[in-house]
Design a protein around this nucleic acid. Sequence first.
DNA 1: CTACACTATATGCCATGGCATCTAAATCGA
DNA 2: TCGATTTAGATGCCATGGCATATAGTGTAG
Lengths: 158, 158
Amino acid sequence: MASKSNGGAVDLPSFFADLVRCETRLYNALNDRLRERHGIVTSQFEFLRHLRDHPGSRVADLAAEFAIGVGATSKGIDRLEKRGWVLRQPNPADRRSLLLALTDDGTRLANAAERTFTRALAALIADALDGPAGTAAARVVSDLRAAFERDQIGTPTG
Amino acid sequence: MASKSNGGAVDLPSFFADLVRCETRLYNALNDRLRERHGIVTSQFEFLRHLRDHPGSRVADLAAEFAIGVGATSKGIDRLEKRGWVLRQPNPADRRSLLLALTDDGTRLANAAERTFTRALAALIADALDGPAGTAAARVVSDLRAAFERDQIGTPTG
DNA sequence: CTACACTATATGCCATGGCATCTAAATCGA
DNA sequence: TCGATTTAGATGCCATGGCATATAGTGTAG
């Protein structure tokens, strides 16, 4: 028997493989749509959306939210700033830090890209998440994320 | 009625965000373990494990399995070959193609890394996947992966 | 056999992320 | 108040992936 002991336990390596492959393909498919319609990729859309919904975020706030390094976040903001979608503003309360905000163009882009994103995402996964099993799956993933964040698991070095 | 049947309907953008953040942190945490004990990262472990379990795979087979481009796969194999873990062998049936196989060192590494990987993964997610909700979540993800592969969703260009 | 289309892989350029390191600024301790 | 530590962010080097293209080998129509 390939499987472990009991009759209902999940095979964790298989689950991990399925999860990563889903995520890869989902990201690829969403990137295709966002790139062709708005010239951005999904990670950039997520930055823009977060800044729209949390204006005044700092670089470190974004890094913590997305579980990527501060350096990578800084470079990501560089690229969005060069394209005219994000502004770095001095933080009067702490001159080391910068407050990030969208420009008007950035806000418009975030809103337009969100429509594309939401529609594409629904077309890709709505059916799979319909029903009680989908609801259960959503809660498992949500709880797991909360546990990882609480315990600072997988938070990058810098 | 995908979007109107609330009272239990999953918020898809939130689900996507949770999924991606879980996957990022999981990958980061597993990378840490594998790097410190074996000098490889998770994507390399996955290559090695697949080659151990499917000897004679071609570059294109790996690319399809992991939903990454053929070029990236070729470069990944370059790196494993330089470290002495993988061999490219001529394919007698088609001189364009190469059959990939692990060296003895590569096999030993795959086995050792698998123990580290399995233990670390269990420590990270076993609790969250215990019980009926976990089983349902695993099936949702597995079905979604199967659907993506069947429909070739998110398969990279080249 | 030849020309042409197709396939398998490799390679180059670019974008992105990790980690280490650097600077400036804030904070803490004596 | 001053030096030491910590924190925020930027930057450099390296690894990796996408996409476009190059190269070689295969198959096929005629």
